[in-house]
Design a protein around this nucleic acid. Structure first.
Length: 568
RNA sequence: CGGUGAGUGGCGCAGCUUGGUAGCGCACUUGGUUUGGGUCCAAGGGGUCGUAGGUUCGAAUCCUAUCUCACCGACCA
């Protein structure tokens, strides 16, 4: 490709609304342009990268035995009504009507369509297992699209769906997909982690997310410094080793005035937050007689609402009580709540339960207790793991301690079980002639998001540094003042044809630009290797090859260029 | 959905307080100059100021409504 015949579209200035580095660089490098909130044009350079990623994904999926299909972006509402997600999915599901006033949705995912398809086409156990996938546009009407390509409303996803007669069979395909995903991210050249995850609204039991590690990530991942254990902090189990020491203080009530936050109370009493517990009132489930239940965590810990909402006593989704409800239920207002003589059921986090002589609210305004102790001062309570893990916690795997890092979720795999197949009656005849509902797995990869994540992980102050596997071009020829030197032009042209003939993706910067402009542009778009053709080296029949990542420069003979580039 | 801020040539911004029909940088075009790290000079093309309404002799500027966009938040007592 010649730059003179290409749409390079690089720019010096960044639109002011681009916050994250990948968004800024994708705009400056001429990869994408915004059309509307969360929707983008993909320009030639961006599309080249996107296609590279898609190609690797497709290749590994095929290798793992998945079969490619294509399903429509627009889907009829009745499929969604059948699965129950027409009501369940909420406003992220964009609903539209056709000219006959019939309801449709823009597909955010394709469980319904694929399940209906398999239900019609697959009738015998002999056709199983089956793993179907597509690489296709999805639309999710995000509350707040942000970070450019990272969280768009329209994006490209590889989604695969597998169908099985048994859970064992599902599990073996699941493991196969797990491995395929590892292969994909390794081939692309990203630092990633598979982590144990929550299955969220998609449903199902077993689930892993694949995260690209980057500072700008939206998720926190906890992983052991001594083993492979990694989990989304939403899920990471908190291990409490401490046991409750004996009480040494008497229960005493103190006037804490207007101090209501943990921080204020700690300052007033000159104690550490770890010596306090905080009490949060949330809506109760039907399992308990009261309207509210109390969740108690140590003062320096945070509540993990996903863990909490899974507790049988807690209404799901988690909903905090408002100020009035708190006063009605306890007689005290928010800020002075505590477990002592509480009027609602108590769920106490294990590490809070391991405290002795702690400080807590007294369920009376402007008053806290010091020297509180569970066995002596508090009635019945239940112990559970409801807090967020923190760095330094023992790893649940038993080896090492947890570290916490930011990740960008680029893949997610689930064992769905029969959630969709049951709702949509998708089954086959077994060997004994009995109709049986299928077990399903589903496996997603954010193809567009991978592009952004790769940039977050690979850039410097000059621009993008693509991993070779997904670079838009492998090498760029940068001629020095070609219009003034016949020799430079001749060599550049012949290298261009030689590299093209060797099937190497080469960009030839044949613009009549000054060297500085070319260097800056090519570094910005992140081409891994540059060949600088200049008078300087031509007397020796040589050119300079520069490595974008290491910035290393080597001067080599012109007739070695093709082989050298090939070897990279 | 709540809060904050912003909409002026392709991009980045100024002008708005103190109304008098628009300016700068980048990019673009032409000529010259320069040439191994975003040269310099000159001449040009392009916007009616998000939209609608109002006040006024006169509105980018004041008022009202509306749309769009961005950032923060939507959980810690």
């Amino acid at each position: 490709m010649r730059t003179s015949q290409y749409l390079l579209a690089t720019q010096k200035e960044v639109p002011s609304d681009a916050e994250v580095i990948s968004h800024q660089l994708m705009l400056r490098a001429g990869m994408v342009r915004k059309v509307a909130a969360g929707m983008y044009n993909w320009l030639p350079t961006g599309l080249r990268v996107l296609n590279k990623v898609a190609h690797i994904v497709r290749d590994e999926m095929n290798k793992a035995g998945a079969i490619e299909i294509n399903m429509p972006v627009v889907q009829p509402a009745d499929l969604w009504q059948e699965s129950g997600r027409w009501e369940e999915y909420g406003p992220e599901l964009l609903r539209i009507k056709d000219r006959h006033d019939r309801d449709f949705v823009l597909g955010p995912t394709h469980e319904e369509v694929v399940t209906a398809l398999v239900s019609n086409e697959v009738n015998s156990y002999k056709q199983l297992p089956l793993n179907l996938y597509q690489i296709q546009t999805k639309f999710r009407d995000e509350v707040r699209p942000r970070f450019g390509i990272m969280r768009g409303r329209e994006f490209i996803m590889k989604d695969a769906y597998s169908f099985h007669l048994s859970n064992e069979c599902l599990d073996s395909t699941y493991q196969l997909m797990h491995k395929a995903y590892c292969n994909i991210f390794e081939r692309i050249g990203l630092e990633y982690r598979p982590v144990i995850a929550d299955s969220g609204s998609i449903g199902g039991a077993v689930s892993h997310e694949f995260h690209v590690l980057a500072e700008s990530g939206e998720d926190d991942i906890a992983f052991s410094n001594q083993s492979d254990y990694a989990a989304n902090v939403e899920l990471a189990e908190a291990i409490t080793l401490e046991t409750s020491p004996e009480a040494t203080q008497d229960l005493q009530s103190v006037d804490t005035g207007s101090a209501s936050t943990i921080q204020e109370v700690c300052e007033l009493l000159s104690i550490e937050p770890a010596k306090t517990v905080k009490t949060l009132l949330v809506k109760a489930s039907d399992e308990v007689a009261t309207d509210l239940v109390a969740l108690i965590v140590r003062g320096d810990h945070s509540l993990n609402d996903i863990k909490a909402s899974k507790h049988a006593w807690v209404a799901s989704p988690l909903e905090f009580a408002n100020a009035d409800e708190v006063v009605t239920a306890t007689g005290a207002s928010i800020g002075c709540l505590g477990p002592v003589q509480a009027r609602v059921p108590l769920i106490v986090d294990a590490s809070a339960a391991a405290c002795a002589d702690f400080v807590c609210g007294a369920n009376q305004n402007n008053t806290h207790y010091t020297g509180a102790n569970w066995q002596r001062d508090v009635g019945e309570f239940e112990i559970a793991d409801i807090r967020e893990v923190v760095a330094g916690d023992p790893s649940p795997c038993g080896k090492g301690n947890l570290e916490i890092r930011k990740g960008i979720e680029v893949g997610h795999i689930f064992q769905l079980g029969d959630k969709y197949s049951k709702a949509m009656n998708c089954g086959v005849l077994t060997e004994t002639g009995k109709h049986e509902v299928l077990q399903m797995g589903c496996y997603g990869i954010g193809v567009t998001r991978i592009v952004a994540a790769a940039i977050e992980q690979n850039h410097d102050k000059f621009g993008i540094i693509w991993p070779d596997a997904i670079a838009p071009f492998k090498v760029v020829i940068i001629p020095m003042n070609m219009h003034k030197s016949h020799r430079v032009k001749e060599v550049a042209e012949s290298l261009y044809s030689a590299l093209s003939d060797a099937n190497i993706e080469v960009l030839f910067d044949d613009r009549k630009e000054r060297p500085g402009v070319m260097f800056a542009d090519m570094e910005l778009i992140g081409v891994p290797y540059s060949i600088v053709v200049g008078e300087r080296n031509l007397d020796n029949q040589q050119v300079e090859i520069k490595n974008r990542r290491s910035n290393e420069k080597t001067v080599i003979a012109i007739d070695e260029v093709v082989d050298t580039i090939k070897s990279y």
